[in-house]
Design a protein around this nucleic acid. Structure first.
Length: 232
DNA sequence: ACCCAGGGTCATA
DNA sequence: TATGACCATGGG
């Protein structure tokens, strides 16, 4: 994924200009997000697995348990019985399957030489290596690629789909890779902007662009009252 | 008593 | 390719 041309789009589709306007407006309303909420890149990786289909507040408890048990470490996770790992991450839900997924990810992490080993891979190879881990899908991989390795990828999640869909910029049911390609084709490789944009989508989705009641009047999509008069 | 939450895998057609 | 079942806790 390197720099690309910018197909000029008008009407209801995607364009780089629209995204940068959206980014500025969201930042104005929600403030700087300084993501990912973690102390180390490895903690980002753990959090990315634990937050699968799970509220972040639950993940925070699980990570606090891991920290208290000195388990925020790949070798430590691999050394402890699966049952004990599952018990530590219980608050994040799906604890049995997530315990196995963490072990899978840690095994790959160690095998590839830890963070520095993985960092030698180019962005596409890094993403593929993460996707090869059972339990790591496209969103989890992209969270890690962007927030643990600072590589330029656009992360697609449920909030992003909902917001862009309500904006009328996308249909909403496109496959992950297709949607990612559409967005990346109109954005720059600016890691900082991609970092902020995904974090702001999550903030906006949590606080305002809710599934129900469906927003009415939000300037994001002419239907949501909370954000003031100026459309994004 | 619902619905939702920063998904992914697997079986099946 | 595209559905559906399954995983499981905690907050609104």
């Amino acid at each position: 994924m390197t720099a690309r041309g910018r197909p000029k789009k008008r009407g209801g589709g995607l364009s780089g200009g629209r995204f940068h306007h959206l980014l500025a407006s969201l930042r104005g309303h929600h403030g700087p997000q300084h993501w990912w909420p973690a102390e180390t890149p490895f903690e980002v990786m753990v959090g990315a697995v634990l937050t699968q289909n799970t509220a972040w507040t639950n993940v925070e408890r699980a990570i606090a348990n891991l920290r208290a048990r000195r388990l925020l470490d790949a070798e430590a996770i691999l050394a402890v019985p699966a049952e004990e790992l599952a018990d530590a991450i219980r608050p994040s839900g799906y604890f049995n399957i997530k315990a196995q997924r963490l072990r899978n990810l840690c095994a790959a992490y160690v095998e590839e030489g830890g963070h520095s080993g993985l960092a030698r891979l180019d962005t596409a190879a890094l993403r593929d290596r993460l996707l090869a881990v059972n339990g790591v899908g496209p969103e989890t991989a992209d969270d890690i690629v962007l927030y643990a390795f600072s590589r330029p990828v656009f992360v697609i999640d449920a909030y992003t789909r909902r917001i862009l869909s309500r904006l009328g910029w996308i249909g909403g049911d496109e496959p992950y890779d297709e949607l990612q390609g559409m967005v990346e084709s109109v954005l720059t490789d600016d890691v900082g902007a991609l970092n902020e944009l995904h974090a702001l989508f999550v903030a906006h989705g949590k606080e305002i662009c809710r599934p129900r009641p469906r927003c009415e009047g939000c300037p994001l999509h002419t239907d949501c009252p909370q954000l003031g008069a100026e459309p994004y």
